[in-house]
Design a protein around this nucleic acid. Structure first.
Lengths: 226, 226
DNA sequence: TGGTGTGAATGCCTTCACAGCG
DNA sequence: CGCTGTGAAGGCATTCACACCA
């Protein structure tokens, strides 16, 4: 597959440290490309793509140039091809086994969130301390006691963990996930947690997002949008 | 109250355009200060605060200096005082009436999320198109038909809206919110929406956060954490 | 002594501008 | 001709380093 001529492809990956902001925009490019593809759009120029997302054309080209040469002079980018390339870069061309810890309201919503599956993130297990949910299934995902975390993570070869427990329990859960060999953690608990350097960490604090919004409203510093 | 001597306070607000990154860190400072206060900590230095969050001491001081002079040489910052100042800056010293649009799994989880209330964000209404939920209450919040959105938004003086509907409906909902006079929108739909410049916009895409994590795992570019 | 506030220096990211190619 | 890829320039943001203060 993908015997596309000899253009510099995704392979060289990142040698000269890619700015975090670029990676973030990569996700935006991918999302927009997937939209465009659904609408049957075949190719798009950097200026068109940028315009839809609020970026400059130069920004789009520079960002993509970090990872290879994907464009065609005079044409732009082939949507299908570029989307696949970005998926390879982000890692969503493969499936990721995910575990959820904390089956409260938020946790349950996450278990049922379709957007994850569409991008290749598949829940294999959920954990909680509440005996009323342990042993049940939600959205087809089995819920285990927190005690069985190491065992289940290892046997299912789960690589990513999502923390949706109260703030006070978050660091403890993170420690267990790390010990079980998890590679990355998405933390929804409103607290700073620390993990060893070989584990990746992304945090989302819902209240903080609203704070950013209220600040933006108060100071009307146009376009807090990401 | 707050007759604190004559140190330059929050008032001058932002004159020389505050970088977005600074505002984001402000939320982290506030969250950490609230933790510290619960533990009874009275004062903290920029280096201590920074260390807990992974920032340098100079960064902490520069950030705060955008908004006034809050520190005491030789002492550091008084946690209570600084927390209050940041709340004033972010706007969470006041209450914000919030509306939710889209009462699916995620929407329901958001209605029950305690973290919002703690920071002064209060749901006054929710909207959906599903007749099975219209007229009911969830977590004490009344659910209205989407048709009644303008009326309810106006009568309750709701300033912020949260969008938790499918991607295909998001822009339409945003348009209605804008027309109803909303001041800021937090968008959870995985799509780029556009609003007029006088309306603030913050977007959260849950799948994107996982993409950032998988990228970080694959390229092990230490510390994707925010 | 311990720690802030801040100009100056550094370094990084974005934008410009243009050669080159289909 | 249209649009990419990219060196060079420019603009921000972060870090340094130090005067000053309690």
């Amino acid at each position: 597959m993908s015997g596309r001529s000899k253009r510099k492809s995704t392979e060289p990956a990142s040698a000269k440290s890619v700015p975090q902001a670029v990676v973030s925009r990569l996700s935006y490019y991918l999302r927009e490309l997937q939209h465009l593809l659904r609408q049957g759009v075949q190719t798009i120029s950097s200026s068109q793509l940028g315009q839809r997302l609020g970026f400059t054309d130069a920004q789009v080209r520079k960002d993509l140039a970090y990872f290879g040469q994907f464009g065609y002079p005079g044409i732009g980018y082939r949507c299908q091809e570029l989307a696949e390339a970005i998926r390879r870069i982000l890692g969503t061309d493969q499936q990721w086994a995910v575990a959820l810890v904390g089956v409260g309201h938020l946790g349950q919503a996450l278990l049922g969130y379709k957007g994850f599956t569409q991008q290749g993130f598949v829940f294999h297990a959920a954990f909680d301390v509440n005996p009323r949910v342990i042993g049940k299934q939600i959205e087809g995902i089995p819920i285990y006691s927190l005690d069985r975390l190491p065992e289940v993570i290892r046997s299912h070869k789960i690589r990513l963990g999502i923390i949706a427990v109260p703030a006070s329990a978050a660091q403890g859960v993170a420690d267990r996930l790390v010990e079980a060999g998890i590679q990355g953690i998405l933390n929804f608990a409103p607290v700073t947690i620390t993990v060893p350097p070989q584990v990746s960490l992304v945090g989302v604090d819902l209240a903080m997002e609203l704070e950013q919004l209220s600040f933006s409203v108060l100071h009307r510093q146009q376009d807090a949008g990401k």
